[in-house]
Simulated scan of single mutants.
Amino acid sequence: MQENRYLQQLANLNPIASVHEVLPDLVMLRTAIANVCLVGEPGRADWVLVDAGVHFFGGRIAETAEELFRRPPQAIVLTHGHFDHVGSLQELIERWDVPVYAHELELPYLTGQDNYVEPDPTVGGGLMARMSFLYPNEGIDLGDRVQALPADHSVPGMPGWQWVHTPGHTVGHVSLFREQDRALIAGDAFITTRQESALAVILQELDVHGPPAYFTPDWAAAWDSVQRLAALKPQYAVTGHGLPLAGAQLQQGLEKLAREFDTLAIPKHGRYVQ
């Protein structure tokens, strides 16, 4: 992983919108507390945006895309529809007029039919968790702009990538995996910072953690999903929160999380802890 000169200049403009080149065709942009991915080789190929970050970052995402690709994406793919992953989505689809894809089980939350469960501020872990009662849990209504990901697990506009159903954090959560180089876009199935802690979020402390506890209602499914991703033995990973991770640190951390999820990730108490 590296940051080329241009990406470093972008990062220096705004520390809460830092840019990281994970692979030549996989760039991560941090939008305050959540990450988005731009997938495609800059200047040479069509590309896809994965997730849409928090509110008020549509301009920054579009600016980064313009500098890298000089064209709109073929599509926007969502790992899930929580507020910090779709915050700038409406602005972006109005700007670009491109289709949006998500797992079929996520569609009710993206078409105005249902809301997510309420966040759980009782899980502990820090200020971000205690403040979670303020985080919106309402779904959004994209109408016919959003459609289900293909049943064959391919990802539109991302040849070589496959979507993997990784529920737990939400029922329709997906991660994206490319076998060729074992690159993984994990969404919030696991993350690389302790998102419950404001200090850890600010410092971007790097480690493998379970999904954000205050917004995870099904811990048994979340554990199964982490085990499924660990079995893929990813070499590179971008997660929904935290810095990119690669190599032995990623694999060993993910294997440990999959093995000890009950003690490392599941809160000792909480609204959704059984």
Rank of each mutant, 00 (worst) to 15 (best):
residue 3 E to P: 11
residue 6 Y to A: 15
residue 10 L to I: 05
residue 12 N to D: 15
residue 13 L to V: 08
residue 24 P to A: 04
residue 26 L to M: 02
residue 27 V to I: 09
residue 32 A to D: 04
residue 35 N to T: 02
residue 36 V to P: 04
residue 42 P to H: 10
residue 63 E to P: 10
residue 63 E to L: 13
residue 64 T to N: 12
residue 64 T to S: 12
residue 67 E to S: 05
residue 78 L to Q: 01
residue 82 H to D: 00
residue 86 V to Q: 03
residue 87 G to T: 01
residue 90 Q to Y: 00
residue 92 L to P: 00
residue 93 I to D: 08
residue 100 V to D: 00
residue 102 A to S: 05
residue 109 Y to M: 03
residue 112 G to A: 06
residue 118 E to A: 11
residue 119 P to C: 08
residue 129 A to F: 08
residue 134 L to N: 12
residue 137 N to H: 12
residue 144 D to G: 14
residue 145 R to P: 11
residue 148 A to D: 12
residue 149 L to V: 09
residue 151 A to E: 11
residue 159 P to F: 04
residue 160 G to K: 03
residue 169 H to E: 13
residue 172 G to I: 08
residue 173 H to C: 11
residue 176 L to P: 08
residue 182 R to G: 14
residue 183 A to G: 12
residue 184 L to G: 05
residue 187 G to P: 10
residue 198 A to L: 04
residue 198 A to M: 08
residue 199 L to C: 08
residue 199 L to G: 05
residue 201 V to E: 03
residue 202 I to L: 15
residue 207 D to A: 09
residue 216 T to Q: 10
residue 219 W to F: 09
residue 219 W to Y: 09
residue 225 S to R: 14
residue 229 L to E: 12
residue 237 A to N: 01
residue 241 H to A: 11
residue 241 H to C: 02
residue 242 G to H: 00
residue 243 L to A: 14
residue 243 L to Q: 11
residue 244 P to V: 13
residue 244 P to K: 11
residue 247 G to Y: 07
residue 248 A to Y: 15
residue 250 L to D: 08
residue 251 Q to C: 09
residue 254 L to F: 07
residue 255 E to Y: 07
residue 257 L to E: 04
residue 259 R to P: 15
